[in-house]
Amino acid sequence: MRPVLDAARARRSVSKVTDAAPDDAELLELLAAAGRVADHAALRPWRVIALRGDARARLGAALAEASGLDASDPRGAAKLAAKPLRAPLLLAVVAVRTPGHSKVPEWEQDATAAGVAHLLSLLLDEAGWGVMWRTGPHTRHPAVATAHELGDHEALLGWLYVGGRPSGWRAERRRPSDATAQFSTLRSRD
């Protein structure tokens, strides 16, 4: 059996979830495992912020502000402000950068944080939760950074929207991914 391979093959994004969500104890257990990603110099250049309840509405207000759209227009800012309410739990994934590190450039620190996000999404899926990683054009806007209380050397990578899987939900069956077009071998010079 190859359980990790099977879990990766079975993972599917779940765009509509129920109001159930993992508690902090379960999240901490999964984060402890997700934090085992490759991490050059063991910087732990990431953190995760849980947004529940009213914190999601505050994020929605920041997204609406970032858009510059009219807040009273139901097709504009109001629609954008409602997006964080699509799931009971949002996990904001933050890259925590150590600028000028002698061995680990910032892009590599961001890659580690993205690795944590992906592995966490896989672990949540395997634990039975519905998960979808979302970003958008306002992810790096100052109003959104302020809503998350980010520090000077932190950058938001996006949110994992987490909730219960709807009753009757089944992962759609997909053909196995053919990675042939994304794989090559660098030949030696003889």
Rank of each mutant, 00 (worst) to 15 (best):
A61W: 04
H138V: 00
G168F: 08
R174H: 13
V93T: 13
R134G: 02
A77Q: 07
M132C: 11
K103G: 04
L119Q: 13
A145G: 01
T98N: 08
T98Q: 15
R56A: 06
K16R: 15
D73P: 05
V14Y: 04
L150R: 04
A92K: 03
R58N: 08
L85Q: 15
L85E: 14
W129L: 06
K16A: 15
L122Q: 11
D190R: 14
I49Y: 05
E172D: 12
H101P: 01
G53N: 09
S184T: 14
A87D: 06
H101L: 06
M1Y: 12
S177Y: 09
H141N: 11
V144H: 07
G115D: 08
W133E: 05
K16E: 14
P74K: 12
A25E: 15
T146K: 14
A81P: 05
P22G: 10
V116W: 03
L156N: 13
T18H: 04
A114T: 10
R75E: 14
L51R: 05
A95R: 00
A77L: 06
A32L: 06
P45I: 00
R140N: 03
G151V: 02
E154C: 03
H40K: 01
P105Y: 10
E29S: 13
L124E: 07
S102W: 12
E126V: 03
A66M: 11
L186H: 11
D178W: 05
L59G: 02
A21K: 08
A181C: 00
A66L: 05
V14H: 05
W107P: 00
G60V: 09
R2E: 14
V162K: 02
G60W: 08
V116Q: 06
G35M: 04
E172Y: 02
G115Y: 06
R134V: 14
G168P: 02
G76C: 09
L69M: 15
S72N: 11
A42F: 10
H141R: 08
Q182L: 13
E65Q: 15
A78K: 12
R86K: 12
R9G: 11
V162W: 04
R12H: 09
A64T: 09
S121T: 07
P99R: 11
V48H: 03
A171D: 12
A62D: 09
L122M: 14
G164R: 02
A41G: 04
